[in-house]
Amino acid sequence: MNRKILAILLKKEISLMKRNPIIPRLIVAMPILVMLIIPLVTTLDVKNVGVAVVDNDRTELSRRIIADMDASEYLSVKGCYFSYDEAFRQVEEGVADAIVTIPKNYFKDLTNGRKPELDLKANGVNATKGTLGAQYATMSIANSLSRWQAEQGVSLSLPESATVNLYNPTLDFRHYMIPALMVVLLIIICGFLPALNLVSEKETGTIEAMNVTPVGRLEFVLSKLIPYWVVGILVITVGMCIGWLVYGLVPEGNAINIYLAAILFSLVMSGLGVFIANKSTTILQSIFVMFAFIVIFQLMSGLFTPIASMPRWAQCITYAIPPRYFIEIMRSVYLKGSTVADLWVQYMALSSFALLFCLMAGMTYKKRV
């Protein structure tokens, strides 16, 4: 590889990127739009879950439990009723999403060492809202009992088991989504744009002029990809900064692990992009092919839908989806503080895909003289 020729070609590519009316704006707008807009729109957070309460205890503690649920930003007490039928009617009418029944002598049983259980039912029509609402209500009641015990200095026989949400105690969906959204940035910047760049060279005929020069295949392909690799790393940095400044989300693990995964995934997407460009003759053709891959990557990588909830046959297919491993790394490093040693399987998978796609890109690009 001739480094002097590569440096000249890189200078030429940077000049072309600056003169392009779309690429610089896209590079600036992509991380802002993806990291700011998508977390606000595509969220599974459920707020203002309607709760109908049947208070058969009517003690100060039961009133405290109801008040704490109503004060939560995730729950909204729609009413306190004397019978279960009245509360159930609110669910039938769509006013409430869950019913909490506080049994008679609830406070007395707690202070006497018994462990009474609250009856909690969720509306299964809207499964997501009902299930999450039931979890929110359970957490709110547990917190109310703990605070009451500390404030009043009384000994309550609290339930032995309680739900503790590890790594994301508040169940904030943005904490789960934001690390994974960075995969969209790299797919566009390091896969989509290089493919369009190469195919545009074919349509304008400039690639034919390049092919009759002494420039080698390696120098030419690298000159097309290196600028986008650098931009991809910058975009990841901007995305991390937006996640920190806007949403207060910082990685629990080392940022070096994130950049290592980003570099490997950039190689994967750039290799795939060059391969598609080599097989395409027009920009429109490459756009359709890349768009098909992007849709598959987003739907089957676990970005929006958990892989564990997919059918078994679909779960097996996801092992051949490179973004799956990048998303697993990002979420683990961000939320759990995982290291390379913990995620060596995912890093090895990305390395294998990077090697495979880069070999495919190199073998399919032919310098015609």
Rank of each mutant, 00 (worst) to 15 (best):
219 E>I: 02
129 K>M: 07
189 I>W: 03
14 I>N: 10
86 E>Q: 14
97 D>Q: 07
119 D>L: 14
230 V>R: 01
147 R>E: 15
262 A>V: 06
10 L>G: 04
37 I>K: 00
226 I>D: 00
226 I>K: 00
88 F>G: 09
95 V>W: 04
3 R>F: 15
81 Y>R: 06
17 M>V: 13
306 P>I: 04
98 A>T: 13
27 I>C: 02
212 V>G: 05
44 L>N: 11
3 R>V: 14
314 A>R: 02
200 S>R: 13
329 I>W: 07
71 A>N: 13
211 N>W: 10
350 L>R: 01
141 I>C: 06
42 T>G: 03
237 T>L: 06
90 Q>E: 15
305 T>N: 12
127 A>K: 15
229 W>E: 02
163 T>H: 08
206 T>K: 09
234 L>Q: 09
309 S>K: 08
15 S>C: 05
342 D>F: 08
39 P>L: 00
345 V>W: 12
296 I>K: 00
308 A>P: 06
363 M>L: 15
48 N>G: 09
327 I>N: 03
324 R>P: 08
122 A>E: 14
1 M>K: 05
23 I>C: 05
140 S>Q: 11
299 L>V: 12
240 M>I: 11
271 G>T: 05
52 A>N: 04
109 D>R: 13
48 N>D: 14
129 K>L: 08
92 E>Y: 12
248 G>H: 07
187 I>F: 08
57 D>S: 01
6 L>W: 02
86 E>S: 11
276 I>M: 06
117 E>G: 07
6 L>D: 02
222 L>K: 01
189 I>F: 01
78 K>D: 11
149 Q>E: 14
37 I>A: 10
201 E>Q: 14
29 A>C: 13
226 I>W: 00
65 I>D: 06
156 L>T: 10
351 S>T: 14
181 L>Y: 03
323 P>F: 01
190 C>F: 00
113 G>Y: 08
75 L>R: 08
66 I>C: 08
93 E>H: 08
365 Y>C: 04
190 C>A: 12
231 V>W: 04
202 K>L: 10
203 E>P: 06
20 N>D: 15
60 E>L: 09
248 G>S: 06
238 V>Y: 00
